[in-house]
Design a binder for these strands. Structure first.
Lengths: 156, 156
DNA sequence: CACAATTACCCACTAATCTCCACAATGATA
DNA sequence: TATCATTGTGGAGATTAGTGGGTAATTGTG
């Protein structure tokens, strides 16, 4: 499972070196590629090992073509899903379309999220973290009973 | 299964080069053709490997001739379904009727959607993606309980 | 049967991508 | 502190994918 966050850089060709620590687990055993796609609501990219992604495809397959919401989600996720295969140096090439979606500049951040990594532009990421912290603090003082009950058994 | 999106161009003869990566899986084993038809609600074309299309035909066969909506759907899909066979360079020729339906200009986009590809005019596609993203963001902040429950087990 | 229009085949050009090698930065070891 | 190993970065060259267009084959029409 993926966790932690890594400051990385994107070279002029749009290539991104993955942390050695996670290279093996990113390549599904079959020697397969990685799947990179866009997030449907945040300006970041999602990076899945092929095996994980295939599970999602199975679920997407079952969404209805007649429900606009499900149709939209399916189109966004699948339509942007790109096979990225790692070169001999452990790098992947991020397609221009995807880079634009996440407003990626030279320095970016790879954020572990269990079954996937998120790829954020470093600056966007910092801003987002600050915002999220602010919201959490506010909610903590406000005290939402329903929410805290749901999060209770996290036993943080 | 088909995924990702590809910026391609339509040449003066109305030909379209398919991505090498998917050429084999587009041709059903029997060396057969591809079936191209129109989408019944969006300005795009649908491109199926023959084998996949035949499954759809089976289902269309079972639609009622007495229900106007089913009748309409059947007529639209079947009536526009065209056999396109790939030439030695991996290109197919899109009939003029279909090109018009999707308002195809020179640059278009091929979008993988599991059992088929969608063919959009590049510009139309961009506009649509932007619109859909906007809707998704709005819904994310609004927080629709019912929807999020249905999409919960996607475990993105 | 001849002609025109369309479609398929072939070759060549260009631009993108992959492979490979080299170097720099970092950290570990003696 | 010097040496070595490992990791991240940059870039040259080879390869391949996508495109354009000439020519031959096929189709349909008068």
């Amino acid at each position: 499972m993926f966790r932690g966050s890594f400051a990385l850089s994107l070279d002029d060709k749009g290539r991104l070196t993955l942390p050695t620590r996670y290279r093996d687990s990113l390549l599904s055993e079959n020697g397969g590629a990685l799947i990179c796609t866009i997030d449907h609501k945040d300006p970041c990219l999602l990076l899945y090992p092929l095996s994980e992604w295939e599970e999602i495809e199975e679920k997407l397959k079952r969404l209805s073509s007649f429900n606009p919401q499900e149709q939209r989600l399916k189109r966004l996720l699948l339509g942007h899903a790109t096979d990225c295969d790692m070169d001999k140096n452990g790098r992947i090439l991020l397609p221009a379309t995807l880079r634009e979606h996440a407003h990626l500049s030279k320095s970016l951040r790879l954020v572990g999220q269990l079954n996937k990594f998120e790829i954020w532009d470093e600056e966007t990421w910092h801003r987002r973290v600050a915002e999220d912290m602010a919201v959490e603090q506010e909610m903590a003082t406000a005290g939402d009973a329903e929410l805290s009950e749901r999060l209770q058994d996290l036993s943080l």
